[in-house]
């Protein structure tokens, strides 16, 4: 589904990603861990297509297509969706309006008509109650005045509505109390199926207690220093990152 080969990327002239190779198959959940400043958010930003990140070498293929040739919105329409670490506030734009526009943009890209209003409302009601959010959130401005936890739930709500093929989650657990973390994790887990994949970026192992990854990668200084199964996460939790750096790259 996603194939990253020898990816190098620079931000403002300095190289942050220094040769990342990673393959994610349908049905898999991958976690990327690593110390602060390792390049985890840079990797998600490059995948989502944020301005200011320049790919200098390597390739990214998504569903057989060259991702670098696709605009930000095309990536989303094709099913690559990013859950933000710091979702922005958009004053005056109702949450439900954003959801509807996003869903219909995706449908238009697939050659489908807009979803009829009753069907849309039914879908939204179901998803919002799954996320244990009050329906008043639909009529509030996007993320405006939301607490950190509410913003994260709102990100997952969007995922549940848009049903991405590949969900990209950057520090989706940061700022969450344990209850909110459970709700968010349940939301993410409900996305899991054999046709979908998830790439989570996280600092801490605790999220991985709730969302069990198939593979864990340790990103250090722009390179994947080590990969393993979920036990690697536990080992990192216990021993920190230092020992990985000292070992030769996997």
């Amino acid at each position: 589904m996603l194939e990253i080969k020898d990816l190098h990327a620079t931000v403002e002239g300095s190289e942050i990603l220094k040769g990342i190779t990673l393959t994610i198959n349908p049905g898999e959940v991958h976690a990327i861990m690593g110390p602060n400043g390792a390049g985890k958010s840079t990797l998600s930003a490059v995948l989502a297509g944020r301005d200011g990140y320049e790919v200098t070498q390597g390739s990214i293929t998504f569903d057989g297509k060259d991702l670098m040739e696709m605009e930000v919105e095309e990536r989303a329409q094709a099913g690559l969706l990013m859950g933000f670490q710091y979702p922005v506030e958009i004053p005056g734009v109702k949450n439900i309006y954003l959801l509807k526009s996003a869903l219909n943009a995706q449908r238009a890209a697939q050659g489908l008509d807009e979803m009829p209003a009753p069907e849309f409302m039914k879908l939204i009601k179901e998803k919002i109650s799954f996320m244990k959010m009050d329906s008043s959130f639909l009529h509030r401005a996007v993320n405006e005045g939301f607490s950190g936890g509410e913003k994260k739930r709102n990100e997952i709500l969007q995922m549940l509505v848009l049903q991405p093929k590949l969900a990209l989650l950057d520090e989706i657990d940061s700022g969450l109390d344990i209850d909110a973390m459970k709700v968010v994790a349940e939301g993410v887990n409900s996305l899991r199926d054999e046709n979908r994949a998830i790439l989570m970026v996280t600092h801490y192992q605790r999220l991985l207690n709730h969302i069990t990854p198939d593979q864990v990668h340790v990103l250090i200084d722009g390179r994947i220093a080590k990969s393993g199964d979920r036990h690697l996460a536990e080992e990192l939790e216990a021993r920190g990152y230092e020992w990985v750096i000292e070992e030769p790259a996997a």
Binding site: V72, A76, M82, P87, S101, A102, Q158
Partner: peptide, 10 residues
């Protein structure tokens, strides 16, 4: 970027 990353055109 937020809106576009939801598939909404610029």
């Amino acid at each position: 970027f937020y809106c576009k990353s939801r598939g909404i055109s610029e």
